Structures are given as C-alpha cells and as structure tokens.
Amino acid sequence: MKASSRLGAAPALAAVAVLALTACGSGGTGDTGGDEPTAPAGSLAVMGDWSGCEAFGDFEVLQAQLGVTAIDGALQSDAIGEGIDAEAAGCAALFDLATFSDTQGSFDFSVTGDAAARGGLAPWSDESEAAANFADRIEQRRENLAGVDYTNETEGELAGDWDESLYIAADTANRHYIDAYGRHGDWVVYLSIDYLHDPGVDAYETAPDFYPDGTAETMAVYPFTTDELIAWVAQEHLSQIESDILQRAETEES
C-alpha cells in the first residue's frame, strides 16, 4: 500500500486561484475607472481595512472541527487589494490532520491526512455590486475552469440570514471539496475546504481482507465524516461567521 502525499492539495489551490482571478464585480476599491475614484461607501467603507484571518477568527473553530494536528507553514492573511483575490480580505492555510498507521508483516506505513482552506470577505459599496459578485463567483465555480474531476456533487443553501447562499460539495478520487458562498446585503463571504480522504477509511476500502475485524467506520481517524462536515459548514459555521462579521461591523459603525 502506498502512502498518499500532500500533492493532492494542488487542484484545490488551483481552483481557488482560478475563481479568485476570474471573479469580477464593480470594483471593490471604490475606483470607478475615472481620474478621481469615488469614496468607499456601504460595507466597503466599514470593512475595507479588515484582514482576512481576523474576519475568519484565524480558522480556530474550523481547526477544532477538522481535528488539525499542525499548520503547514502559517496562516496567510490578506487585506483587500492583496493576495490572489484582490476583491476580498482573505485567509488561507494548509493543515495536517490525523494519521493512520499500520503494520502488515514486515511493512510499516503511515498516512497523514491534510486539508486546505481559504475564506474570503468581499465588501461592496451597494447591494447590486455584491449581488453581481456573488453571481460571478457561483458561475466560475460551476464552470470549473481548473478542470477538477468532480463526482457526486451536491448543493444546497446555508442556514443564516443570507440574501443569497449556496454550498457545493463534491468528491474526487483522493479528496473531498466543500465550497460555500453567502451574500448579506452589500457584502459576500465564501469558504472553500478540501481534504484528503480519511486515510483509515481508505486503507480499509483499498484492502478490506487485511482488516477482517475492521470496518470503514471503526478505522476512520478523522473526528468527522464528510456528511457531518458538510452539515456543520452549511448549517452552523457559515451562519456563525455571518453573525460575527455583522457584530464587528455594527461595533465599528457605532
């Protein structure tokens, strides 16, 4: 049995890059393209100087849900105008997850799970700009310009007080993907997560004869199943992020 590697994260990061670079709107900086840019208005005036990882609480709640064992490098926090998505304040990270280890005869092996996460907050001057940006991001995800070989795609709405929302969950040969988007008035938020299939489950499903007393469920090393993570993201986590952003914005406006 051959251990998987972190190279599986590359398609996810490529997909995020394509989505970010191709997302278009009315200009998140308040620049109308003329000689004198207009002053920021709406949520852009309030959130324009926020850093991405502050908006997402440094992914602390997400890390707990995933059972993160280590951060590969450091969190990458960008303000609006920085990073691969200039329209959004972004936060990105690569995580190590749980490890499955086993011995078969004289062969010892272990596989460590991994996850990639990227969140973004894109504030705009009015609702029409935000609605256009939300639609653009959904369109780019569905067009799948990165060419990821998705299977078993499902989608639905997010819990919370969103004007528009959507999550899309999908599978590939080695990874699971969850992309969630919400628009609240004149700002848009998104969260993309992908992670290696549970290495314990994969070990069992690849060679069940090696584990006559095991099952995919008992050999799992992640503290979540895919269905549980999708439900948590869609029904709990994004609505909490929405509430946190609203609370901070109200505090800074007062």
Rank of each mutant, 00 (worst) to 15 (best):
S239I: 01
N144L: 10
E164T: 10
E54G: 10
E60D: 15
S43T: 07
T218K: 14
G52S: 05
V221C: 13
D149I: 03
L238I: 03
A89I: 00
A116H: 08
D171S: 14
A115F: 06
L229F: 15
L121Q: 05
Y150C: 06
A23H: 03
A207I: 11
H237N: 08
F224C: 05
Q76Y: 02
A45I: 01
A116I: 13
M219D: 11
E139N: 12
Q240T: 12
S106Q: 11
D227T: 09
G42P: 02
A79L: 10
Q247R: 13
L97F: 05
H237P: 01
E205M: 10
D163H: 10
F56G: 01
L246Q: 06
V233T: 01
N152L: 12
R248Y: 03
A220N: 06
N174A: 14
W232K: 03
A130K: 00
E54D: 15
D161A: 15
A115G: 07
D35I: 11
S192Q: 08
C24H: 08
I71R: 01
G30W: 03
L166S: 02
L21E: 12
G185I: 01
W162T: 00
G28L: 02
Y150P: 04
A45Y: 05
S77R: 09
P123D: 08
E205T: 15
I80A: 03
D102T: 13
E250H: 09
Y150A: 05
D244E: 12
A3D: 07
I138N: 00
T103N: 11
Y211Q: 09
L158C: 09
F100Y: 15
G42F: 02
A93P: 06
F134S: 01
D194L: 02
E253K: 14
H176P: 01
A131N: 07
A55H: 04
L145Q: 11
Y211L: 09
P212L: 13
F107N: 12
E155F: 04
E36C: 10
V16N: 08
A10M: 13
N174P: 00
E143R: 12
D114I: 08
P199K: 02
G34Y: 12
H184P: 00
A10R: 13
N133K: 04
D85H: 11
G214H: 11
G105C: 13
V46R: 00
A234C: 05
A234M: 05
E143I: 01
N174F: 09
Y150G: 04
V233R: 00
E205N: 15
A116T: 10
T172Q: 07
W50N: 03
A89K: 01
G120A: 02
G214V: 11
Y204G: 03
D209W: 11
D35S: 13
V188H: 02
A45L: 12
D126P: 01
T251Q: 15
A64S: 12
A93Q: 04
C24Q: 05
Q76C: 02
D96T: 05
N144C: 10
A98M: 04
R175C: 06
S106N: 14
E228A: 12
V18Q: 11
T103W: 04
N133D: 09
Q235M: 04
E54Q: 14
S243C: 01
T206A: 14
L158K: 06
A17G: 14
C91V: 10
D227V: 07
Q140K: 14
A39M: 08
P223I: 03
N174G: 11
I245V: 14
D171Y: 04
S77E: 05
A70H: 08
S101R: 13
G48C: 06
T206S: 15
A10I: 13
W162F: 15
L75R: 06
E205G: 03
